[in-house]
Nucleic acid binder design. Sequence first.
DNA 1: GCTAGGTTGATTACATGTCAACGAAACCGT
DNA 2: ACGGTTTCGTTGACATGTAATCAACCTAGC
Lengths: 167, 167
Amino acid sequence: MSTKPSAGAVRWLKPDEERAWRAFLRVMVAVRTGTARDLAAIGLSEPDYEVLSTLSERPDHTSTLGEQADKMGWSRSRLSRHATRMEARGLLRRSPDPTDGRGCLLVLTEHGLDTLGNAAPAHVDSVRHHFIDRLDAEDLVAIERIARKVGEPQAGDDRPLNERRST
Amino acid sequence: MSTKPSAGAVRWLKPDEERAWRAFLRVMVAVRTGTARDLAAIGLSEPDYEVLSTLSERPDHTSTLGEQADKMGWSRSRLSRHATRMEARGLLRRSPDPTDGRGCLLVLTEHGLDTLGNAAPAHVDSVRHHFIDRLDAEDLVAIERIARKVGEPQAGDDRPLNERRST
DNA sequence: GCTAGGTTGATTACATGTCAACGAAACCGT
DNA sequence: ACGGTTTCGTTGACATGTAATCAACCTAGC
């Protein structure tokens, strides 16, 4: 660590900042693992649920793969692979896109819709149990306030990893 | 799976709760992808950094694999695999444990220590840029307050996935 | 002291996600 | 109509995470 790339001296985290950062990491882990485990208990992964849920909000429970991928912030590749697995489980099916010979449509099956209808209440319970019900109104507004600041892109931010095609 | 699992009516999320939940998800994604990308730019993954960082805090930059795994909340298997990859990159090396014929010690190499010394300031900058510097004192205390509520285990919570050995 | 039963340590096998490259279809200026 | 370029979805190679397995180590009972 002789010479450093950063211009000035390092602004190490102050104690309260360090505590907040670690606290945030703990919350992330706790909530994710909690809700993920509850979903797994009814046979769905988080990605599964997200696909079912967003697809169900569409007319005819149908969407092109690319559109769906963008909406979820996924790569096409990831969704394609995941769709293949879900197709094998009968949760959805592929159908050729009449308006674009290259594309394909993802369509929710009956079984997929039933599964979601069953899972949704359990998932809401889970989100409440692990997160919402533990917080009060003040916490909720704090989260929205923080999200407004953190969510906004800022100087030095690049595009998400998904949207890179060229070398 | 025919009959409903939930006893009473579903307590769907109220608008403010829904907003807070989605805001939280956004924050998770934004912060993780941001810091992960910055680390990747200097050739390290998040797990890489965690291993280097926690190992460096030990006497002789050394720890048994199991101890290290527990400290990081990882499975032994996961750490073993990751250590192999980092070993191949020269960031650390394995060494037989003199006190336990079965075990092995993970030791940080010179190169590993240099890499960490280089990465640490950049990572702190990254955490500041994507998170801490966007928040004020009020936000920080809110996060700690929330973490206290969310972090605590509660009825229906099980052990983390790692610590399960028996059926 | 030695051996059966259980526990702990680490690696192997498998599922899943990412990135880069590809063939096919659509687009577009000529 | 026709090359060149872009976009769509898929696939192969690889990285990563979890579950199953094997090996070494204690400890109790004889």
